[in-house]
């Protein structure tokens, strides 16, 4: 029994040791939390950055910005946050003002926040367009008639919030749509994209970049009047262990080299 316990303890300690060890003291590990829609492009930018600064190891975590915001709030170790909506960043940024920083969280390092990218919200349909929807106007009519199934992000996900604004712009009541059973909710933009790609639904409201990465048919693009501009803010977090390196990485994302990668799937890099 004692020997078994000793063995378990030994295994446990070696496993823990494996986690903390590795790499010399000079190496820097930057943890980057980014919206799921940035996955492919940011990984590609990371590979470029590795050539420029080999000492910096980038660790990415991609999920819905709402989930990432919650994890940061709960104390997750993170150096850089790139959100798919201003709302999630505002919630963490005291400087954004109390009307949007409702929980009074102060987790964004002062002066590091800027608008990195712009994306578009689009209407996509599966191959063959089974419900025959060719525009947002036709989508609206089909939703009111109640004879389609549309995949959208839930209210916690930025793409879901843009979708809610589109419904509000049309004067559609989401509760009534739910009663008619025409909306199905995904918990991040990628889940909605997969549901369209697999033909599980008649259409989906997602980002232009996700649609392009997945090779989906885009039938219409939402205008700024419908859902506002889709801006991705980026910032260094105040409890970053390497604020200088974190800032340098964000600056790198504004260089032409990184910009070309981001543009390749349809993002628009912003200068400000």
């Amino acid at each position: 029994m004692k020997r078994a316990l000793a063995l378990i303890l030994f295994l446990f300690l070696t496993a823990c040791g494996g986690n903390s060890g590795g790499g010399s003291a000079e190496d820097v590990e930057l943890i980057v939390f980014a919206a799921a829609s940035l996955q492919e492009t940011l990984e590609e930018c990371g590979a470029l950055y590795r050539e420029e600064r080999p000492k910096v190891r980038l660790v990415f975590q991609f999920d819905s910005s709402g989930t990432l915001k919650t994890q940061i709030e709960e104390g997750a170790e993170c150096d850089v946050f790139i959100s798919a909506g201003q709302k999630q960043m505002d919630q963490l940024d005291r400087a954004a003002g109390p009307d949007v920083n409702t929980e009074g969280l102060d987790l964004v390092a002062r002066g590091t926040r800027f608008d990195l990218l712009e994306n578009k919200v689009v209407l996509t349909v599966p191959e063959g367009n089974p419900a025959g929807i060719h525009s947002f106007d036709e989508l609206r009519a089909a939703l009111e008639a109640g004879d389609i199934l549309l995949a959208v992000g839930n209210g916690d996900v930025p793409v879901g919030q843009y979708t809610q604004r589109i419904f509000a712009f049309w004067g559609l009541d989401e509760a009534a749509l739910n009663a008619a059973g025409v909306l199905t909710y995904g918990s991040n933009a990628r889940e909605v994209t997969t549901q369209v790609a697999e033909g599980l639904v008649d259409g989906g409201i997602i980002y232009a970049t996700d649609a392009r990465s997945a090779g989906l048919t885009v039938v219409d693009t939402a205008t700024a009047e419908m859902c506002g501009r889709v801006i991705y803010p980026a910032a260094v977090l105040s409890n970053s262990r390497f604020p200088g390196e974190a800032r340098a990485f964000l600056e790198f994302l504004r260089t032409p080299g990184a910009g070309a990668v981001l543009e390749s799937v349809g993002f628009t890099p912003l200068d400000n």
């Binding site: 995949a151 059973g181 909306l183 199905t184 995904g186």
Partner: peptide, 8 residues
């Protein structure tokens, strides 16, 4: 089956 209010 996803999450479709009123259906699934």
């Amino acid at each position: 089956a996803g999450y479709t209010p009123g259906r699934t």
